[in-house]
Amino acid sequence: MKRILSNKWHIMVFVLPTVLFFSFFVIVPIVLSAYYSLLNWTTKTKPTLEYFVGFRNYIEMFTGKGTSFPRAVGHSLLYAGASVFLQLPFSLFLALLLAKGVKAEGFYQNLYFIPVILSSVVVGQLWRKIYNNDYGLLNLFLRAINVETPKGGWLANKGTRLWATFVPVLWQYVGYHMLLMYGALKSISPDIIEAATVDGASGPTMAFHIQIPLIKPMLKVCLSFSLIGSFKLYDMVKILTDGNIGTEVPATTMYREMFKSHNFGTGSAMAMFIVAECLLFTVLLNALFRERADGRTLRERLSGLFRSAPDALPKGADRP
């Protein structure tokens, strides 16, 4: 017995490498970022308390002369909105269609997932070509049907550049969210679907009253992914427009601040802002879903057996 008891301590050791790893590469850097964000740290100064400036960096990044950070934050919120209200519903729609069992279900499902496994460098290059002013697919198509193409190219034109930057990201990850939702839909017990069918549910009724409520935990995961992904959005924007004026997002502005202007203090403040933004939305999302779960509706009681499923899921995660 004593041996088994000592085993309990023994297995703690297994977690140690990962915990140390996380501490060293995630927790410590966050703490350091918080510290640096309070310093006036440029190439001329050093990260010591001598250059402590309090919250000046935070004020500067929003109100400083020529700062683009507020605009960048606006863009990221806009992108988050697009992701939540366009991309996710679209993915859900696809997942529902596929889970219903169309012909060649597996084929479509594989196909939609292909962009996800491609590197964002490749997808970025691909879309730059699609947008190319002279021979891009998009313009060729528009010219063929006699529609005017934007002046200066999609990624440079004032009216189109922001959305032209967002579309490739949305395009790339539609399949990812679809797959997550599809997996969840397929995990619903066939008994429930059958029972609902016997009761006369089909099509939209089935989707809205049975399937969607049952995959709520997965929807929450998707929402977390897309929100956090929105705030951290970087590589695709970097490749498409380099985060130039009109298409900047917080991460591109932050890197610019650090590597071009060498304002490490302000850059760290921006990093902290992104962390705070993610935290805020995670908390909001959790609150939203908790409230919904308490107000038990008929369909949730119907699925009483499976209601406990939410706990199984992570509260959100990075894109693998």
Binding site: F25, P29, I30, S33, K232, Y255, A271, G316, D318
Partner: peptide, 10 residues
């Protein structure tokens, strides 16, 4: 770590 990267500089 799922939610927060630590920031590049540190």
């Amino acid at each position: 770590p799922m939610f927060f990267g630590g920031g590049l500089i540190p």
